[in-house]
Structure formats: structure tokens, C-alpha cells
Design a protein around this nucleic acid. Structure first.
Lengths: 169, 169
DNA sequence: GCTAACGTTGAACATAAGTTCAGCGTCAAG
DNA sequence: CTTGACGCTGAACTTATGTTCAACGTTAGC
């Protein structure tokens, strides 16, 4: 089939399919004499796998490292290893999400719990102090701490090495 | 204080502080006659708030929209609204994380549950079919469905509008 | 033979949140 | 007076995941 049909069958755009080829992720492609790409029905499966893996939190680089050229011949060890690590990543993120959610809920309550006799400015200071309490602790500790406190100070997202970043320098 | 001291006190880099100023996020800055930036101790608080909000999943744009120029004068309604929406975003992501994790665990089990009498190729096909089952359903349904199935087909991350994307076109 | 739909390419653009760099100015100590 | 640390600017670069565009080639139907 040509690229348009593959796009339709896989639900991806043609630009995305060409992009995957360019970065070496989709190698199952041939060329007709006129230069048109041709795909077998395997390509649909591969694209399905790619988007499924993406949904599960794998980057395209990770997927490329795991996807074999022959779909019937996987690297079992690497695969289950990567899957297990991804589960751990997810669990770590779940923990952080729970903490963030709890902090937000506490904050919402705290804002609404302004004592009748307190003016807004004072309330703001009170809430502000509470919000920054944990962070400031971190800071004062960090300032002459040797082991970094695991970098929880970054946006919430499921990135490959989200936990243990080794700054090679 | 000058920028270096603020960087040290806030734990951010000077480039990051200048960047925040450039994008209009940190307005609490004055200039000496020599061109050097000067900050009050409020700036430390503001930077602390910014990184705390970032950790909780707010983008810099969102933070800019919520941060008042006067820390004692917040927009209560906008703030609690944003906080509540962020909690909802987190809950949505928690659900997706749970699903992804469950799928990965199922997949790991499935890979290891290869029947003794089945060769690797056949096992690969079996597992592959299972993995893609849900996705293929989605696809066949989507093809002539009116309401989009809520775009769960994208990487896991906590982005502002992660749930309900309105394509204005 | 024309037109519409499809295909090709390379390059540029988009986003978010910064970092890095070159080239220059300022300031305090020795 | 020199040196080193600190500061300034604007521009370019980074990462990941694509999209968009212009300019051109191919093919099928009429």
C-alpha cells in the first residue's frame, strides 16, 4: 500500500509516518520506481505498536531501541526490563502526583479558611508561609547537603529518566 | 541584592532568573545606575512560589496569569479556580497512569506466560494481538465516530489542557 | 491534454523552559 | 594597573515530537 492508505489504516498523518522513517523508527518501507513509498500490512502493526508504546509513556528513542526489525523476534530481556522500569517510573510519578494533589487541596482549604478577623493581606502572608514552608526547608537543607534531594523540583511528567538524573560533568 | 545573591538564595541559576524577567514572570526588579539588576527579598519569595507552582504542574504561562504584582493582593477566585482545575488534571492523569501501569503489568505477565509448546514467533504474534486489541478497537470505532474518544492516544504528561482539546478550526 | 488527488523533498516552524556563548562593561583587591 | 569575579546584552542552541510549506513529480479519470 502507499503512504496515504497506511495513514488511513493506522490513524496517523502522512507527515508523521515520514517523520518516523526519517528518525529510523519505521524501517519497513520500500520504494516503487516512481519514488513512492510502499508498505506491507506489517507497517500498520508497527505503527500501532509505536502509538501504543507512546501512550504507555515510552519515548520514540526508547521505542526504537526495543522494536526489532522482525516482529516475531524480540529481545525478551531488554523488553521486560524496559517494561519493568517503565512501571517503576509510573509508580514514582503516581507518588508525586499524589503529593502534588494533596498539597493543592491543602492550599485550597487554607485559602478558604481565612479567619473572620484577618484581613486579606495578613491571610496572604499566612498562606504564603505555609506554601513555602516545605520548599524553604528543602532549600536550607540543600545549601550544604551532599546528596541531591532527588530533584522533585521539576514539572510533573513521565520522562524516561525522570528519577535518577546523572549529570555527567 | 544583586542577581548572583538572588540566585544563591533561591537556588535558581542567573540565566533562569533573567529568563523569567524576559517573559514577564518576574517583575520585581530594579536597576542600579551601572545597569545591574537589584532585587528585594520579596524576589526570593516570588521565585520560591514559581518553582513550587511548577512542581505542582503549573506552566509558566499559568503562573504568570495567577501571580499578582503585589503578593498581598491575590485574585482569590481565579486562584482557587485554577487550583481546582489543576487537581482535576492531576486526577485525570492518575487515572491514565493507573491504566498504563495495568496494561504494562498485563503485558509483562503475558510475555512470560508463553506456553511450553509454543515457539517464540507464535508467542510474539499472540502477545502482539493482545497488545493491539484495544487500540484496534479504538481505530475501527473512531473511523466513523463523531465524538472523539478523548485523545488518550498521547504521551503521559501533565499539560494544562491535557484533557479537553478544542481544535479551533 | 487537463485537472485533481496523491506523492516526493528539504527546510523552516512550533512548543516549553530554559542554557550557552561571544563580546563587552563594572568593580574591588592587591 | 592588572586580574578575577561578577554583571550586561542579544542571539543562537537545546530536546522531543511532530507540522507546515513551497516547489515539484506522478497518476487516474474525463
Amino acid at each position: 500500500m502507499r503512504i496515504g492508505e497506511l495513514a488511513q489504516k493506522s490513524g496517523l498523518t502522512t507527515s508523521r509516518i515520514r517523520f518516523y522513517e526519517r528518525i529510523g523508527l519505521l524501517k519497513a518501507v520500500d520504494r516503487r520506481l516512481n519514488g513512492y513509498r510502499t508498505y506491507s500490512s506489517q507497517a500498520v502493526t508497527i505503527l500501532g505498536l509505536i502509538t501504543t508504546a507512546q501512550r504507555a509513556g515510552f519515548t520514540l528513542d526508547e521505542i526504537r531501541a526495543l522494536l526489532p526489525s522482525d516482529l516475531t523476534h524480540w529481545d525478551h530481556a531488554a523488553l521486560t526490563g524496559a517494561l519493568t522500569r517503565k512501571v517503576a517510573d509510573i509508580e514514582a510519578l503516581q507518588v508525586r502526583l499524589g503529593q502534588s494533589k494533596a498539597q493543592l487541596l491543602r492550599l485550597i482549604e487554607d485559602i478558604q479558611a481565612r479567619p473572620e478577623d484577618m484581613d486579606c493581606a495578613a491571610n496572604a502572608r499566612r498562606v504564603l508561609t505555609n506554601v513555602l514552608a516545605k520548599h524553604t526547608e528543602d532549600l536550607t537543607v540543600t545549601s550544604d547537603d551532599v546528596r541531591l534531594p532527588d530533584r522533585t523540583d521539576r514539572p510533573l511528567s513521565l520522562k524516561p529518566g525522570a528519577g535518577r538524573k546523572v549529570v555527567s560533568r
